[in-house]
Each structure stands twice: as structure tokens, then as C-alpha cells.
Design a protein around this nucleic acid. Sequence first.
DNA 1: TGTACATCAGTGAACGCGCGTTCACTGATGTAC
DNA 2: TGTACATCAGTGAACGCGCGTTCACTGATGTAC
Lengths: 215, 215
Amino acid sequence: MIPQDPAKLQAPSASSRRRKRGTGHELRGVVIRVATDLLARSGDVDALTMRDVAAAAGVTPPSIYRHFPDKQALVRAVIGERFRDFTVALNQAAEGHENPLARLEAMSHAYVHAGLRQPGHYRVMFSAVNAGPDGLGLAKGTEHPGAASFRALVDAVTGCLAERGTSTQAMPLATGLWASLHGIVDLRITKPEMGWPNTDLLIDNALAAIRSAAT
Amino acid sequence: MIPQDPAKLQAPSASSRRRKRGTGHELRGVVIRVATDLLARSGDVDALTMRDVAAAAGVTPPSIYRHFPDKQALVRAVIGERFRDFTVALNQAAEGHENPLARLEAMSHAYVHAGLRQPGHYRVMFSAVNAGPDGLGLAKGTEHPGAASFRALVDAVTGCLAERGTSTQAMPLATGLWASLHGIVDLRITKPEMGWPNTDLLIDNALAAIRSAAT
DNA sequence: TGTACATCAGTGAACGCGCGTTCACTGATGTAC
DNA sequence: TGTACATCAGTGAACGCGCGTTCACTGATGTAC
């Protein structure tokens, strides 16, 4: 979202000198790192170009193809890594809270704050239609890279209903909460010029349905 | 989202024959109509090409530039029209309900159903970052084309709190409801492969915070 | 210890493509006399 | 009523650009003898 000279991102370890024999795989990590960085700024997969990635990594474009068959594979790798981090952030937030509702509240805050801390990544992960199994060229039957993070949310909601319901009944509530949290993050990102109410208050309201179902 | 031969959209009135003198402005309407149709299918402004629009309108690309200075102006015209229809749909749904909460419920359902009936349009209106004032090249000080629809929602929420609060207090609740409804629509569009709970149930849960504040 | 050779990270130049947009034009239509 | 002309909707061809990707290659590095 903030345009900046991609050359400024150049990974120091990759500049000027060629890697030694047998260490070519290092470039793979560098490429993922700079692509992650570029996507954080643009929030748009289409705005990511192999040329920019190469320049930021300090190599020429053909070098990238030693490690990724095409751009889609590179994007898939970045998105997969972002979702893993996202899921870890949700679960870490839940840790240390015994009360199920407190756990869910902590996860909800973590969801929104993770999204707002890296809006570009959030958009790439959630708002691109082509982030679905088809668009990313995932093998058939492969689950969506964000499936684990959604399961974490469903489990937390199920915990709140533990003595009163099953996970089947938790699904609509969890999906509704997810929609609310997603809406908060997505709208704040796309409409930053609006006067936004306090985020914590919005999250609190988003939990209203679950709170009343759990008590 | 569903690729299809754009030629199939060709407006009959524009095909094969040139318009008579003085009726050139008719093409403007045709262009908006076919662009609207193409955007409904793709849901992506970047996927809209002037060449496709021209082909669907039954003319060559330069003809479009007689009526729109550039692609951005065409997209702006389409989005403006879509938002006007969207606002009308919300207000029409509210009509005929005296009870403020019933009005708000009706509007909420209209919001989601309008979005799901034309997912491509919804994405173009709400999910494109460049739909904001900057990206659309709107004159400075011009409000977002969707501002009126949001105001309608805020007013309906204010009505629910009539004797208990002011519109200042309504803002966080209205924003939260908007985020929920947007999240429901956006996620259903981008993750159609998920097993989705009943939409009306989700909307009902989204209204939980307002319902408990209004009673 | 020296030398020929295989390996492999990375390059320079180019490919074909589709895009928004511009240019100079054509030819039917209406109007002035 | 006929004719010269201005108007204007629309065209055909091309522009410059940036993109993903491919190709044949280079030259430093490690290894085998």
C-alpha cells in the first residue's frame, strides 16, 4: 500500500556475491522473505512481479525459477507461511487463559490485531479470490491454507459451550464470529479514511451472540 | 468469476450499425451496461479490459474514449450506479416496517442478499482497495460512493436506540453490524467451498449486540 | 601438488502477449444555400 | 430540388509498456586423478 523502491529491500546476504556451491537453496529463503515483504506493502498478489522480487533479492529474474516453478508457487509458499504464523498467533493468545470465554476473547483480539498489524498480508491471505484452492493451484483435496486457523476458532467457541452444546451447534456461532472479525479487519483496511470506533469495543460487540449463548 | 465469451454480451442496439447523428450518447449507456455485466462476472476491476468492453458493446476500443476519458472514469461510473441501487435496495427493504428493530432486520437481510445475488458487484464495490476516494480518482472532499448506504444503516440503528441514546452512541453498534454483514458476504463469496450455516441465522447473531442494547 | 573436468549458481537477452491509449482516417448524415 | 460542405460516430493500425517465462550461456568452485 505504501509504494517504495523495491531495491531498498535488497537482502544483504544475496547482494553482489554469488553463493558457494551447495548453498544455492539459501536463495529460496531470501526470495520468500522479500516476496513476503513486498506483499506486506502492496497487499495485492497481482502487484507482485517476479522482476521486483528478483531485484529485492539481489538476483536476476531467471534465478527465481531455480527454486519455484512459477509465480503461483512462490505466492503459495508465502501465503502458507503467513497462515502458519497467523494460527500460531491465535493459539499463543489463547494460552494461559483457563476460562473458555477469556480464551475466545484473547483469540479474537489476536485475530484483529494480527490483521491490522500486517494489513497487506491479511488481504493477500483472505481477500483475494484466487487464494482459494483453485486460484492457488493447490492439489485437489488439499485443504485451504487457512483451515487450521479457522479450526482453532471453532474449538475455542466449542469450549465456551462445553456443557451446553456440541461442536455442531458451535459452527454457526463460530462462523458468525469469524465473519465479524474479518469484517472489522477488512473494512478498517479498505476504508481507513472513516472515523473508526474503538476496536476493542467492536470486538466485544462481535462476541455478544456467543456470550449470550454461553450463559 | 465465471469466464465467458464477452462477445456473447454484445448489446443488440449497438451491433452492426452506426448510430444516427446526435444519438452518439447512447453508446455511453451501452458501455456502462456491458461493463457492469463484465464486472458482475469477474468481480475484479483489473480483469476488466477496455477491449472486452468494446467488444461486448459492439464497437472498437477507441469509441469508448468518446464518452469516458479513461478506464478509471468508466469504472467510477459503474461503481457509482451500483452503490445507488444498493442504497435503494436497503431503503426499500426498510419501508413498511414500523418497528425500528424490524426495519433494521429487514435492512440487514437486504444487505446480505443484495451482496450474494451479485457477488461480483459486491467485491468491486467493497473489496477493492482502489475503490476508495484515492484509487477511484475522486475529487478531493468527495465522499465515498458508498457513504449513503452506510448512513442508511446508521440511521436505522439510531432508530432502535431512539429513546435510549443518540446517534453518537449508535456509531459503534452500526459499524459493528456493518462489519458483521460485510464479513458474512465477503467470506461467503471468497470461500464458497466451505460448509456455510444458514444465512438468516448468521444475520440474526450479527444483530445480537444491538438487540441487547435496544432492550 | 598440479591439472583437467563436472557441477551448479547465476546471467543477459530475448520471446510472445495483452494492456491502456493515441493517431490519422472514413464515410454516412444532416444542413445551408 | 440539387449540391457542396460541416459534423460526428466510429474505425484500423499502431504506440510504448510491463509482464511471466525461456534460452543458451558464463564462470567460479569443488573434485578426481
